[in-house]
């Protein structure tokens, strides 16, 4: 069975839910303290939370820990690397994904459900979605305002939209360029998402739309 590492930094707090969602998607998952090694894993997930209390910039300190060298090797080898929320911030700070996540345009922490339009179903994380499909997941962040100088450099995976899939300014919660909520690297094996798929992985949570992301990831890691 394929096995995913869920990396835990000081201040990570979405690791249990993420582990549970990966297991529900049919793989093994283990929470791994950042000072240990990633040997014997098929993929890596950087879960949400507030690593190092968001000091300096969210994700900045975690991105410079030694374990990230191993995560870079995973990325280079084409194995799946998923960053959720603070994990996405860590991936941009580590240079594994382009761009930066800046403080929200509105001066507050945003914690609510959003609609997302699926823009790219060719990544190992989104193969079980339909192109243009509208899904629901929660966001919970203060620094989710995605910035990139040249948006043509990124593979846009999810965009904030209304319930009809209209990617409008009104549907943009945080000021992200082009309503960007999730991106992938060129190869598609590194994905960063501000919305939390693990919080939408059970119908009792209000949506199972996020579970398909983990299922896609697990399915492709098996091959």
């Amino acid at each position: 069975m394929v096995k995913f590492a869920v990396i835990v930094f000081p201040g990570t707090n979405c690791d249990f839910e993420t582990e549970r969602a990966i297991k529900k998607a049919g793989a093994e998952a283990e929470r791994v303290w950042y000072k240990t090694s990633l040997k014997d894993f098929d993929g890596v997930v950087l879960p949400g939370g507030f690593s190092y209390a968001d000091y300096l910039r969210a994700g900045a300190i975690a991105a410079r820990q030694e374990i990230m060298e191993e995560v870079k090797e995973f990325a280079e080898e084409g194995r799946p690397v998923l960053g959720i929320c603070n994990g996405f911030q860590i991936l941009t700070e580590a240079g594994l994904l382009p761009g930066a996540l800046r403080p929200n345009r509105v001066p507050r922490f945003l914690c609510r459900w959003v609609h997302l339009r699926v823009n790219d179903t060719e990544t190992p994380f989104t193969s079980l979605y339909e192109p243009g499909e509208v899904i629901r997941m929660p966001i919970a962040h203060a620094e989710g305002n995605y910035y990139i100088d040249d948006p043509s450099k990124v593979r846009i995976v999810f965009q904030y939209s209304d319930e009809n899939g209209d990617v409008s300014e009104e549907a943009n919660p945080n000021g992200s360029v082009l309503n960007i909520a999730a991106i992938a690297n060129e190869r598609g094996n590194v994905l960063g998402t501000m919305p939390h798929p693990e919080r939408a992985s059970d119908r009792f949570l209000g949506s199972e739309d996020g579970l398909r992301l983990f299922r896609s990831m697990v399915e492709l890691a098996r091959r």
Partner: peptide, 9 residues
């Protein structure tokens, strides 16, 4: 360059 600033922003 390496830590205190993010050269992109």
């Amino acid at each position: 360059r390496k830590l205190l600033a993010n050269p992109l922003i």
